[in-house]
Simulated scan of single mutants.
Amino acid sequence: MTERDSQRSRVYAWEDRVVAAKDPSQIAFAAAQGMIDAIWAEMGLLYPPRAAPMPAQARRRIADANRLTLRLQATTPSWCLLHELAHAMTTTHDGVSDGHGPAFMGVYVTLLGRYLRLDEAALIQSARDAGIQVTPDAKPVFADALIRHPRA
């Protein structure tokens, strides 16, 4: 495990204990792209990633993401869709990612608060109690470029 993603196992354990326990809802793959597009736009971003099915042989992963694609199962927990969107939002166009670092956690907590109506302050405190660093005011990594160079 790289130093940059040293929080990964702590984030997964925290997520199972705190987030998944509060949200049992599931998203069908057919509905995922509409949700991705809407959330991406509400965050003030252009060019959302595309939803794609996880390979059939993927048995251990629920989902994964990069800047361009969110790979999802036939049904995916709502919190997991937000987790993968946070990865897409914290990965630059050239593929540099925050992994499960403080910026990822800040964006993820924002998404959990906004779309699952979980208490952001309580999420941040519980994450910090679990030894997870969080940047509370983190923004998607390419949002500043959109603000400086708005489309005509």
Rank of each mutant, 00 (worst) to 15 (best):
G106P: 08
S78T: 11
M89V: 03
W79Y: 07
P55C: 03
G131R: 06
A38L: 11
L111P: 05
W79V: 01
E84A: 05
H100P: 01
D16R: 09
R60S: 15
S97V: 06
A52R: 15
A58Q: 12
L116T: 00
I27Y: 06
Y115H: 04
T110G: 08
R117Y: 07
E84P: 03
A74H: 11
Q26I: 13
S6Q: 12
P24D: 10
V109N: 09
M43V: 10
M43C: 11
D64I: 13
R71P: 09
R71L: 14
G44I: 11
P49M: 07
R67L: 02
Q26R: 14
R50F: 02
A121I: 14
A51E: 01
L45I: 09
L82G: 07
R50S: 13
E120W: 00
A20L: 11
I36A: 02
D23G: 08
H93A: 14
L46E: 15
A130N: 07
A65R: 10
E120D: 10
L68W: 14
S78I: 02
L45Q: 10
D37Q: 03
A28D: 12
A74W: 05
T92V: 04
A122V: 00
L45M: 14
S25N: 00
Q125N: 14
G99V: 06
D23Y: 00
Q33W: 06
